[in-house]
Design a binder for these strands. Structure first.
Lengths: 341, 341
DNA sequence: TAAATTTGCTAAATCGATTTAGTATACTAT
DNA sequence: ATAGTATACTAAATCGATTTAGCAAATTTA
């Protein structure tokens, strides 16, 4: 926008009135501030005629409110986060806020950088899927009384708002389902991470395995592995001497790589190998045989987050007690496990 | 952030110097402005000690630069747009910008709203996948000399920057491939839209069909149809009396619905029906048989967009001539068509 | 030794809105 | 006639940075 932008003062000058009056009118305070209906009409007409667009920066600087929520997800191109982002955006727009977002790529440095960028931008609140090691940064936000909510994972040691899944329950019912369908050597493919959600998913697996009196088969992949490397590792895991007869993938992208590995090895689902994965995805629904998944209630989670966060922004007193929400995933049974005996 | 935020003036007061000095130091102009190294050190130390975070709003208000790019995509949860968004974000971050985004959901009203929101936010530039009927809004942006680039589709009547795919070429090579593989009744499933990319995709199809002396079979679905309704319509199309023996889906989501329809009808790919779809996707790679696609060069497109846009922002004189880029997609042959005779 | 230049820093205007604390006029009540 | 109140508006401070123009002291030059 090159030509010097139209400001409130320009309109004021043209109409020979004060900016105060126009500001009152634009903010719907015409009645309250006893602006005559005629002047109001005149001003509104002029504004429309000139195509005046208020400067949100000046507004925000003065009022201290930006109506922007900073969203930090692990990776916007991951279908799970993309869908959550979409729901969040929808909810937030309805309530007059906008979203500024960044992907953390699971790197603390990137995360620190992004948080600082967001603080400088004076966002009204933060929605964060924290990376490992981000406690310090998140703690700084708490100390500065920023409004924030963690999502997907949280820090047990920090008193923050959060909305997460009952991850342990999720893998528990998944593995239990595999047990019921007669699998005996149930593998667990996860990423090498101490993030709360991954620990919980492992715990659910371990619990179900223990209850069934089975032996655990666990394979950890690095989040930073290239897809091909990850697929190779899974092929090895699924093809070694004492190999599993079923496998539970702890995330959607592990599931996707896993299907590729299984296809490469020409293993038949569900007879050679039973499969369940965390998170739903078009692929899992349409793959043949279709893949049984642990589905997260994305809409519900997103709404809950926004409710908690926006309520806290609107009523800062409510920030005194943090709110926690743990939602249950559901088992969507498809055809990737043997039929019940 | 409840407790009154630390401002430059607070630091100035504490050190008993002027804000000017601190501003110079923070902006790396210490040498240029001949600030003594000792004072510089003292200031930097204080800033670190107090954890001062500059207020970007005030900065932007004064300088007229926000370093924010407004991104409007059709739907962030669509894998194509999510991947583009991810690439754009990466490119833009490297160069000191951030992204504020919204999905248009293919609605002009939403789009108008979002554009206005972005203008109020004083974004430095716009990246837009325009909806049908958004010419007026885009034109307003041009008149106000906003920096913008259209993407995925464009308005032939408007002189704007754009980066798009050679869509016509894409469907042409796709359909030609089906012809070469011996299909005679090649269907085209598209959305009911006059957006440039959809028209071009249709044109490529029509050209290839004509060259091959075949009869066209076209089915248009509404963008606003619910998934199930869309799938029903496709089932009808693929199952009517004079039904196609191959089908080209004009977008990734049509392809996804299409696979569902084909599966429901228990048609065998590639013998009962040959399949090609626009856009790559995990599903198309892993579906069995794997699906041949027309793949867009996402990384290249994203980089091109950012280059053009940021260059124009940096050197507004370059805005005098708009830049257009048309990239060629590639045919990724998989197993969803009959083997060559 | 005086003039010119350099050094090291600052006062104050500015960006564009909101908001507080008025003011001037007209009307009403006593 | 006078005080009180309602009406219809506005002046100026403010948010927190950047930036222009300039000042006083120290140093160099002629």
């Amino acid at each position: 926008m090159k030509p010097k932008r139209l400001a409130l003062s320009d309109i004021a000058r043209q109409l020979n009135i004060s900016t105060t009056t126009i500001s009152f009118i634009m903010n719907g305070k015409a009645e309250e501030k006893r602006i005559s209906p005629e002047l109001k009409e005149k001003v509104l007409k002029k504004i429309k005629e000139l195509g005046y667009v208020p400067n949100q920066l000046a507004k925000s600087l003065r009022t201290g409110k930006t109506n922007i929520i900073g969203l930090i997800v692990e990776d916007i191109s991951n279908s799970f986060f993309a869908r959550v982002a979409h729901m969040i955006e929808e909810e937030v727009n309805k309530r007059g806020y906008k979203i500024i977002y960044c992907s953390s790529e699971n790197s603390v440095e990137k995360m620190t950088e992004v948080i600082n960028m967001f603080r400088e931008s004076q966002v009204d609140g933060f929605i964060i899927t924290p990376t490992e090691g981000a406690e310090t940064e998140v703690n700084k936000l708490i100390k500065d009384r920023a409004h924030l909510i963690l999502f997907d994972r949280y820090f047990p040691g920090l008193d923050t708002n959060y909305v997460v899944l009952d991850n342990s329950y999720g893998s528990y019912i998944g593995v239990k389902h595999l047990v019921e369908r007669g699998y005996k050597k149930i593998g667990f493919v996860t990423i090498d991470s101490d993030q709360s959600q991954m620990i919980d998913r492992y715990n659910g697996y371990a619990k179900a395995i223990k209850e069934a009196g089975l032996k655990p088969y666990v394979k950890r992949i690095s989040f930073f592995d290239e897809p091909n490397a990850a697929i190779r590792k899974m092929e090895t895991f699924l093809n070694k001497k004492d190999k599993p007869d079923a496998v539970f993938f702890a995330t959607n992208y592990l599931g996707i790589y896993g299907l590729e590995a299984i296809t490469n090895l020409q293993l038949k689902i569900p007879d050679d190998i039973g499969v369940i994965t965390f998170d739903d995805h078009d692929l899992f629904r349409l793959f043949r045989p279709s893949i049984t998944v642990i589905a997260q209630p994305i809409a519900e989670m997103s709404k809950a987050m926004i409710n908690i966060l926006l309520d806290e922004i609107a009523t800062p007193a409510n920030a005194l007690k943090t709110r926690h929400m743990v939602l249950r995933p559901s088992l969507v049974v498809r055809n990737s496990t043997k039929q019940p005996c």
